[in-house]
């Protein structure tokens, strides 16, 4: 446990002193503010452009916005936030491989599986804080502008998107251990997500794909029910566990 804590402290220290932690928290805070702000500003923007739109033959009627629209905007922004997060974390192993900083620690007796777990727990905590910061910022502004929504449970799709984020991080962890550069690990990750979307074209497979967890927009809109995502949720959890275990196995045999 002492090794795990010491290595985790090192991870946080590096992120704090490089300024990365503040930057990523600010980005996610900005995303959280942006969702209700953009929704709130939409009628005003439409009004500003109404004359030019009317000249083109498009008539804008009386536009009403609400919290549901803001939440839909939130789920549209989740993939973008996730991409930014993976760009920040893509070099978690490659930078240490490149510099050779693992050598001193491993030859001092650091257990390799603790390095993998400490790295994963670190990005998991960071991702959790960032995601829920974004979520609750949106939630707070939505409540302030439009009051609490009684009809839809906003937490369910929120949890599903969060699990999808953890699924992406687990894959990123695995690809980072295999790859020598962050570009390669991010390419592998992007490739995996594309494969998931391609598999989504086969109807019997769709309900098992973790990418389905990003359909929070539809749950909020009332077109889908949470129970429809149970299979993809289970697959995502299995992949997360498998990726972490597989990463430990690979890293134990990795030449440093």
């Amino acid at each position: 446990m002492k090794q795990f804590i010491a290595f985790s402290q090192k991870e946080w220290l590096g992120q704090v002193r490089s300024g990365q932690l503040v930057i990523i928290l600010l980005i996610f805070l900005l995303f959280g503010v942006m969702n209700p702000a953009m929704t709130k500003l939409t009628p005003w923007l439409m009004e500003q452009f109404s004359q030019s739109l009317a000249d083109s033959g498009i008539i804008i009627g009386d536009m009403r916005v609400d919290a549901v629209m803001s939440w839909q905007q939130f789920y549209k922004n989740v993939p973008m936030a996730l991409i930014i997060f993976t760009l920040f974390s893509g070099n978690m192993f490659s930078s240490e491989y490149e510099k050779g900083t693992f050598v001193n620690l491993v030859t001092k007796g650091m257990k390799r599986w603790k390095i993998v777990l400490a790295k994963f727990v670190h990005i998991l905590i960071l991702c959790t804080v960032c995601y829920w910061l974004m979520f609750f910022t949106t939630f707070a502004y939505n409540s302030y502008f439009w009051g609490v929504i009684e009809t839809v449970n906003v937490y369910h799709p929120g949890v599903l998107s969060y699990v999808f984020g953890v699924f992406v991080l687990a894959l990123l962890l695995c690809f980072s251990v295999i790859s020598k550069t962050s570009t390669t690990s991010l390419t592998f990750l992007g490739g995996s997500i594309i494969i998931c979307y391609v598999l989504g074209l086969i109807p019997p497979v769709v309900e098992y794909l973790p990418t389905q967890l990003l359909s929070g927009e539809q749950i909020i809109g009332g077109t889908m029910d949470i129970s429809a995502y149970l299979k993809s949720l289970c697959v995502a959890l299995v992949v997360i566990s498998g990726s972490v275990i597989g990463t430990i196995f690979i890293f134990n045999r990795k030449q440093l």
Partner: peptide, 27 residues
């Protein structure tokens, strides 16, 4: 005790902090 040909450290740490990290690892 191993000293590689080009020893690499975490550049954002001080010498004392780095040695404290190593000490924690060695128990």
């Amino acid at each position: 005790g191993y000293l590689p040909d080009v020893p690499e450290f975490y550049h954002y740490m001080t010498a004392t902090e780095y040695l404290q990290l190593c000490a924690s690892i060695t128990g």
